[in-house]
Computed example of a mutant assay.
Amino acid sequence: MIRVGLTAERVTLVGAELADEVGLEHVTMSAVARRLGVKDASLYAHVRNLEDLRGRIALLGAEEKTIRIAEATAGRAGKDALVAYANAWRTYAHDHPGRYTATQLPMEIDPELLARSPGPRRAIELTYSMLRAYALEEPDLTDAVRLMRSSLHGFVSLEAAGGFAHARPAEDTWVRCLDALHTLLERWPEHHEGEPA
């Protein structure tokens, strides 16, 4: 029997809130059921299993992060857009650490649910669109996307784990890293003969 008021969306949101509080790895079906005040079995009318729930949390996080990035970068280009994009990414990771973690992990997500969720696709479109201002063409454009994603994810992950113990403020380093990333994107190295395209 499906409990009135309980939906897949509500179960996902509670799971996401829990992930932000205790970490995605500590989210269990039992913990979500306790938070909702229902028995574990009630959840299975709305989500298939824990993997399905985590996939739904990832899609929710992707949608939320993409909205923030889209709003931050609207009407901007070049370095201005890059900085706005990066700051929106970092702020989301700080505000929603569990959801952010979910967006970075490979997950088994129901293909139909994925097809109805614009977040991941829109995130890719926004990223490529923002970087096209640097006049990069394939395969350099994809390489630049991977470099940027690695840089932003690496920084926020190390920051969240307390990996920056030096006295220099992380904020100052963040600003300089974005300066360096912008400079690299503007002066992207050319391919040399014999290198993979």
Rank of each mutant, 00 (worst) to 15 (best):
residue 5 G to R: 03
residue 6 L to Q: 06
residue 7 T to W: 05
residue 8 A to V: 02
residue 9 E to N: 04
residue 10 R to C: 01
residue 10 R to P: 01
residue 11 V to E: 02
residue 12 T to P: 00
residue 19 A to W: 04
residue 22 V to H: 00
residue 23 G to M: 05
residue 24 L to P: 03
residue 25 E to L: 07
residue 25 E to M: 05
residue 28 T to F: 08
residue 30 S to N: 01
residue 31 A to M: 01
residue 32 V to W: 05
residue 33 A to R: 02
residue 35 R to D: 03
residue 38 V to T: 07
residue 42 S to N: 11
residue 43 L to S: 02
residue 44 Y to P: 01
residue 46 H to E: 08
residue 46 H to F: 05
residue 47 V to L: 08
residue 51 E to W: 00
residue 52 D to K: 01
residue 53 L to Q: 03
residue 55 G to R: 02
residue 55 G to M: 07
residue 58 A to Q: 10
residue 58 A to R: 10
residue 60 L to D: 06
residue 61 G to V: 04
residue 62 A to D: 12
residue 65 K to W: 04
residue 69 I to W: 11
residue 71 E to H: 06
residue 75 G to V: 13
residue 77 A to I: 13
residue 82 L to E: 08
residue 83 V to L: 09
residue 85 Y to H: 11
residue 92 Y to F: 15
residue 93 A to C: 06
residue 94 H to Y: 15
residue 98 G to Y: 07
residue 101 T to V: 09
residue 104 Q to F: 01
residue 105 L to K: 15
residue 106 P to A: 07
residue 107 M to D: 05
residue 107 M to Y: 06
residue 107 M to N: 08
residue 121 R to E: 13
residue 121 R to M: 13
residue 122 R to H: 14
residue 127 T to E: 12
residue 128 Y to H: 13
residue 131 L to I: 07
residue 138 E to L: 07
residue 141 L to S: 04
residue 145 V to F: 14
residue 147 L to G: 00
residue 152 L to F: 10
residue 152 L to Q: 07
residue 154 G to L: 09
residue 159 E to W: 03
residue 162 G to F: 11
residue 163 G to P: 01
residue 164 F to H: 11
residue 167 A to R: 11
residue 167 A to I: 03
residue 169 P to H: 05
residue 170 A to V: 12
residue 170 A to K: 12
residue 172 D to H: 13
residue 173 T to M: 13
residue 176 R to L: 14
residue 177 C to T: 07
residue 180 A to F: 09
residue 182 H to F: 07
residue 183 T to S: 12
residue 184 L to C: 11
residue 184 L to R: 14
residue 184 L to N: 09
residue 184 L to K: 08
residue 185 L to Y: 04
residue 185 L to M: 03
residue 186 E to C: 14
residue 187 R to H: 15
residue 188 W to N: 06
residue 189 P to K: 11
residue 190 E to Y: 09
residue 190 E to L: 14
residue 193 E to V: 14
